[in-house]
C-alpha cells in the first residue's frame, strides 16, 4: 500500500498526449459531421421514402443500434481489407464511427420530424412555399432545433466512444495512453491523466455545441427558451 504517485514521469510525453487529443478530436469531428448528414438523410427517407427505402433504413438503424461499436469497428477494419481495399486504421475508425453515429442521429432526428405538427406543413403549403422550402424552413430546421440537446449528448458520447478505435490501432488518445504506459510502467497515472483529459474534452465539446447552437438557432436565442 505504499505506492508513490509520480505524474511528473508523464511530462516528457506531453507531445504524444497532445497528438492523441488532436486525433481524437479529428476522428470524432469527421464522424459527427458525416454522421449527421447521413442520419438526417436517413430520417427524411424513413419518414417520406417508398416502403422499400423505409424498410432498408429501419434495418440499418436496428442493426447498428443493437450491436457493439467494438464489433462494428472490427468489421469495418477487417471487412474493408477483405474487399481488397487497403485503408489506414484512422480511416477505418472514422468510417465505423460515421456509420454508427448515423444510425443514432437518424433515430433522434426522426423524433424531431415527428414532433412537427401537420398543421405547420399545411400552413406552409397555403403560403405557396415550394416543397424544398417547406422541408428546409418548416420541417428540418425546427425539427433539428428541437432535438439539438439530444444530438449534443449523442456526439459527446461519440467522442468518448472513439476511444474504442484504439483497438484497431488508430493512434488516438487512448492508444497514445496505452503506448505511454507500456513505456513508463506508470499505468495508474497515465489512465488517470487520460480520464481527466477526456473529462475536459467532453466539457469543451459540450460548450462548443452550446455556442454553435446559439449562433445557428437564433430564434431560440431571441425567445430565451427551448421551443
Amino acid at each position: 500500500m505504499s505506492y508513490r504517485f509520480d505524474f511528473l514521469a508523464l511530462l516528457p510525453y506531453w507531445r504524444e498526449f497532445l497528438w492523441g487529443v488532436l486525433l481524437t478530436l479529428q476522428i470524432s469531428a469527421t464522424a459527427t459531421v458525416s454522421g449527421f448528414i447521413i442520419g438526417t438523410i436517413c430520417a427524411i427517407a424513413r419518414a417520406d421514402g417508398s416502403p422499400f427505402i423505409k424498410r432498408l433504413v429501419a434495418t440499418y438503424v436496428e442493426v447498428i443500434r443493437n450491436t457493439p461499436l467494438l464489433v462494428q469497428v472490427f468489421i469495418a477494419y477487417f471487412g474493408i481489407a477483405t474487399l481488397g481495399v487497403h485503408v489506414s486504421a484512422n480511416v477505418a475508425a472514422s468510417i465505423a464511427l460515421t456509420v454508427n453515429v448515423g444510425a443514432y442521429t437518424c433515430e433522434i432526428v426522426r423524433a424531431g420530424l415527428q414532433s412537427i405538427h401537420r398543421s405547420q406543413m399545411e400552413a406552409a403549403e397555403c403560403l405557396a412555399l415550394s416543397r424544398t422550402q417547406i422541408y428546409w424552413h418548416v420541417v428540418i430546421r425546427p425539427a433539428i432545433e428541437r432535438v439539438y440537446p439530444s444530438l449534443t449528448s449523442q456526439y459527446v458520447l461519440l467522442m468518448l466512444a472513439s476511444s474504442i478505435t484504439s483497438q484497431i490501432s488508430a493512434a488516438e488518445l487512448t492508444a497514445a495512453a496505452n503506448r505511454i504506459q507500456s513505456v513508463t510502467f506508470r499505468s495508474f497515472e497515465t489512465y488517470i491523466a487520460v480520464g481527466f483529459i477526456y473529462l475536459v474534452l467532453s466539457f469543451v465539446v459540450r460548450a462548443a455545441f452550446a455556442l454553435f447552437g446559439q449562433t445557428v438557432f437564433t430564434r431560440r436565442r431571441k425567445l430565451g427558451t427551448a421551443l
Binding site: T174, A177, F188, Y191, I192, G195, Y198, L199
Partner: peptide
C-alpha cells in the same frame, strides 16, 4: 455522475485493471 459520464468506459476499465493492480 459527471465523472462517470465524462470519461470513456474503456479508460475506466484500463484504470481498474492496471491501476488497482498496483495496490
Amino acid at each position: 455522475i459527471q465523472l462517470v459520464q465524462g470519461t470513456p468506459l474503456l479508460v475506466l476499465l484500463f484504470l481498474l485493471y492496471y491501476g488497482i493492480a498496483v495496490f
